[in-house]
Simulated assay, not measured.
Amino acid sequence: MRFGSAPTGEAVDRHVLSNGRIRIGILTLGAIIQSVELADGTDVVLGLPTVADYFRRSRYFGALVGRYGNRIAGGRFTLDGSTYQLPRNNNRHSLHGGEIGFDRRIWQAEGGDERAVRLTYVSKDGEEGYPGTLTTSVTYTLTEHDELRIGYHAVTDAPTVLNLTNHSYFNLAGSGDVRGHVVTIEADHYLPVDEGKIPLPGAPTPVAGTPYDFTRPAAVGARLEGRYDHCYVLRPGGAMRVEEPVSGRVMEVTTTEPGVQFYTGHMLDGVATPYGSHAGLCLETQHFPDSPNRPDFPSTVLRPGEEHISTTTYRFTA
């Protein structure tokens, strides 16, 4: 169904997935997850009511971000001897694909039904400074087991770098803040960052004995005033768990990606967006920040003839 129109005049549609218990709203703008309504009617993701809000007031709410989610230092990287300059839209660095990333593009929907929808976007060579024409598809599937499965696929006609993720903010209470949510992340290491949130030189740091240790369940607000915005190096299998103790709602997350950016929404201010500090938390499954400049990190280079394939699954229980 029609949701609205972008400033360019392009139509923005909303597709609804349902398995009889959970209803999920997906927009063709930014491949955005606009809503996840559980069986009791509670919406557990932060969404906005209009297209205009997504252009004016969004902090990547529910969006698929790319070409490169997270940060690239100085907005610059070298690939096969050529240096590429990207928009520096986050202080001195490039964030989430640049000024007009995948979150602000209109995706083409195919084969939508009540259980799955596939969205595709073709990013032309040179868009936001990235080389190669990249064709990206994402398939959202709602299963009988109350799982939202996100399947990513991408191919390119020239060497490029790629780091796709979904930027949903979750609040399993449906309102209030998430500092009481209890989080488990199966990660023995994390990436310390500088003031620009670029990973520091050196190997990932063990979480043991630090406030960054979520290998055992811990409340978001129990340490560091609940202010996290860090990439964790996941164990094989990439399991995470979030529980809201009052309602008993639980979200379990698995991924094929090597890392997850755990962000607690503490920079939401309730002014530029309708949501205040800690209104939602993000588990952005992805490769590591600044990987194009860090040969010691898993590679994010995609070449012609290769396929980028990745899956992240969110399972909801109560």
Rank of each mutant, 00 (worst) to 15 (best):
L164R: 09
L27C: 14
S175R: 14
Q85F: 11
D194W: 07
S18I: 05
E195H: 13
G75P: 06
V260K: 01
T160C: 09
R227D: 00
P87S: 13
V65T: 08
R241Y: 08
T264G: 01
D80R: 10
L27V: 12
D177T: 08
L302H: 07
A52Y: 02
N90P: 05
F288D: 00
A154V: 10
R104C: 11
V253M: 10
T205I: 03
G98H: 09
T8E: 12
G111P: 08
P304T: 06
G209R: 11
Y60L: 10
T28K: 14
P258F: 14
E114K: 10
M1L: 11
G98F: 12
E186K: 05
T135V: 14
M267T: 15
D103H: 15
Y54C: 03
E186Q: 11
V138Y: 14
V12T: 08
G174L: 09
T136W: 11
V12F: 12
P131L: 06
R241W: 02
G132H: 06
T311I: 12
Y314C: 03
N166E: 06
H181F: 09
G237M: 01
T311A: 10
L164M: 14
A187N: 00
G176E: 00
A109T: 10
Y314N: 03
V155Y: 01
K197I: 07
F214A: 00
V250C: 09
E110C: 07
F170E: 00
R216S: 11
G180T: 03
G25L: 13
I24A: 11
R71G: 00
Y60I: 05
G9E: 05
D103K: 06
A52S: 15
V16R: 14
M1S: 15
L95S: 00
L95Q: 04
H145P: 01
L119D: 10
H266D: 15
G111F: 14
F61E: 08
I22A: 11
P159N: 08
G276Q: 02
V183L: 08
F316R: 07
V138F: 12
R88I: 10
I150Q: 15
D43K: 09
S168T: 12
F102M: 15
I24Q: 07
H230A: 00
G238F: 07
M240C: 15
N166T: 07
P7N: 07
S5D: 13
S58K: 10
D146E: 09
G112P: 13
I106M: 12
Y54K: 06
R56A: 15
G259N: 02
P49K: 09
E114V: 05
L283K: 02
P206N: 00
G69S: 01
D290H: 01
E99P: 07
G132P: 06
G221A: 05
P274N: 08
